[in-house]
Design a binder for these strands. Structure first.
Length: 267
RNA sequence: ACCCUUGGUGUGGA
């Protein structure tokens, strides 16, 4: 467990040389790297954009007589989903099923997410159904990924219906769920509803983060409400939520579009 | 049993 933790830490940082050394140290002590160790390594490689290397380690696992599990394949599949390579993600799903490895909530959420983002809501819905047919109980992440699909298509009524369903099933609205719906409302210029939802969020002690504020600031910038956008920016800093580069870009872009180059410069 | 690995959100004419 100690080795795994260290190897995982190195992999997260992209320090693969150190991780490899540890793996060698392990085997010289007669400890065999297990599935967990490989999973950490494979995950780290994927996150650093080295999915080619990751794939090689999956093969190495097989050679060593280890069985890659759902987490192993999820690491590869999630990587494809993040890069919007939905077809390749589906290939991995097929490979999983041909090896008899069952997809889990992570697998399905990732697939739902990629199709929802890309405007292929029908496909996202299909996977949502498949997930339930597989006997899995959708959690708030799975629901939220799907809700994002409705939001991206401007189907806010459907999105809100799905949120209600999610709550009925006992799932919680967390900060990401709120952010996604807020973003949907803002995109549809339903800023008043956005503000209402934002208040609800605060009342329910779901703490807004810098995504939340950037989404709202963006909405108000697009609507030309630069005063409102600035006041949100102030609230944000008062709450010591650090605006990041995206927040600044959003505001600067907003001021430029309104022709207030001075204010853009002041930021 | 628990622990270690995997999933959902924001800006920029792309």
């Amino acid at each position: 467990v100690t080795y795994n933790t260290l190897i995982n830490a190195y992999c997260r940082e992209g320090l693969f040389e150190e991780a490899f050394q540890l793996m060698n140290a392990m085997s010289s002590k007669g400890l065999k790297p297990g599935v967990l160790t490989y999973n950490s390594l494979i995950n780290g490689l994927c996150k650093k954009g080295r999915s080619d290397r990751a794939k090689e380690f999956v093969n190495e696992m097989l050679r060593m007589g280890l069985s890659p599990d759902t987490t192993t394949y999820n690491a590869l599949l999630v990587d494809k989903c993040r890069k919007d390579k939905s077809l390749e993600a589906e290939e991995i799903l097929n490979e999983m099923s041909s090896r008899g490895i069952s997809p889990d909530l992570v697998t399905f959420s990732s697939l739902i997410s990629v199709f929802a983002r890309n405007g292929q809501l029908d496909r996202a819905l299909t996977y949502f159904r498949d997930m339930k047919n597989a006997g899995l109980v959708p959690d708030n992440v799975a629901y939220t990924a799907l809700i994002n699909g409705y939001c991206r298509n401007g189907l806010m009524l459907e999105a809100l219906k799905m949120r209600d369903k999610m709550l009925e099933q006992g799932c919680i609205m967390d900060v990401v769920s709120y952010n996604i719906i807020l973003d949907g409302l803002c995109r549809m210029k339903m800023l008043a509803d956005g503000d209402k939802l934002f208040n609800e969020m605060v009342e329910r002690r779901v703490f807004p983060d810098f995504y939340t504020f950037t989404i709202l600031i963006h909405g108000h910038c697009k609507a030309g409400n630069m005063d409102k956008a600035l006041s949100l920016f102030d609230i944000m800093t008062q709450k010591s939520i650090k605006p990041d580069i995206v927040t600044y870009n959003t505001l600067i872009d907003g001021f430029c579009k309104v022709g207030e180059m001075q204010k853009a410069n002041e930021l």
